[in-house]
Amino acid sequence: MTGYMSGVLAILGINIIFAYSIYITAATGQLNLGGAGFQAIGAYASAILSNEMGFPIGLTLIFASIFGGLISFLIAFPILRTKGVYMVLATFAIAEIVAGVILNSDYLGGPTGIVVNDYIETELILIVAVTVVLFGFYLMSTRIGLAMRAVHDDDAVANLMGVNTRAIQIGAFTLGGAIAGLSGGLYALYFGFVEAQYFNANISIFVLLFVLIGGTQTAWGPLIGASFFTLIPEALRIGDDWRFFIFGIIIVGMMIVRPEGIVTRDALDRVWFKILGKTNV
């Protein structure tokens, strides 16, 4: 594996994990436009744990996820009081506050950032990514996943069907925060450096777009979305500015052609039908 390939695969892995964190919340109908904030929490947590406490890599990553999940759990209660556009704005505000706190904290390195001493190889990122993807598919195939999608479609009816909608939403938000923390931990350990300016609004916007363009109806969405938008620009080998310009055009075009995302249930059914000659349920 060349250095270039390995770098691309590492970013791909981190993006896929990050996309699943946003997807799990989006699957319950909650849009999180503050992904960067939760990723930053995980990244800084692992930088501190690894540098100051001397945690081994595995433990660092586990605690980065737990920390991300814990903070998400605590803010889920006020955040889930908000709905629709208000929730989009509230999560956006949280990411800004996280960045603001980091910039103002000397312990967290302020605007200069922190150099992380430990490091990981691409292979570990890929193993974690595959695990997260499998977990995403597993979760959506259970009755909990069914309940999550029901909450997405109609929370009032889901509630009458016996689904604890609040627990599902809080759980999804917490799990999303934990996975975002994990992706942040991997980022910090792979690149060996964290700074608040990296975890900006654009990162939150991109990851939400990965998920929405991929499609929130099935667990394929974030995988396809994150891969598509990470690999296509690499394949085209174009400059960064052009890359995002084309990204923008693809988004506007996609929303016109396939507003529910690349992978929808109906499309998936047609594919299964072609392969198996019968409908997959």
Binding site: R149, A150, D153, D154, A156, V157, A158, Q217, R265, V281
Partner: peptide
Amino acid sequence: RLMPHLSVL
């Protein structure tokens, strides 16, 4: 009030 994105089953 069925769930529009879920299958019949």
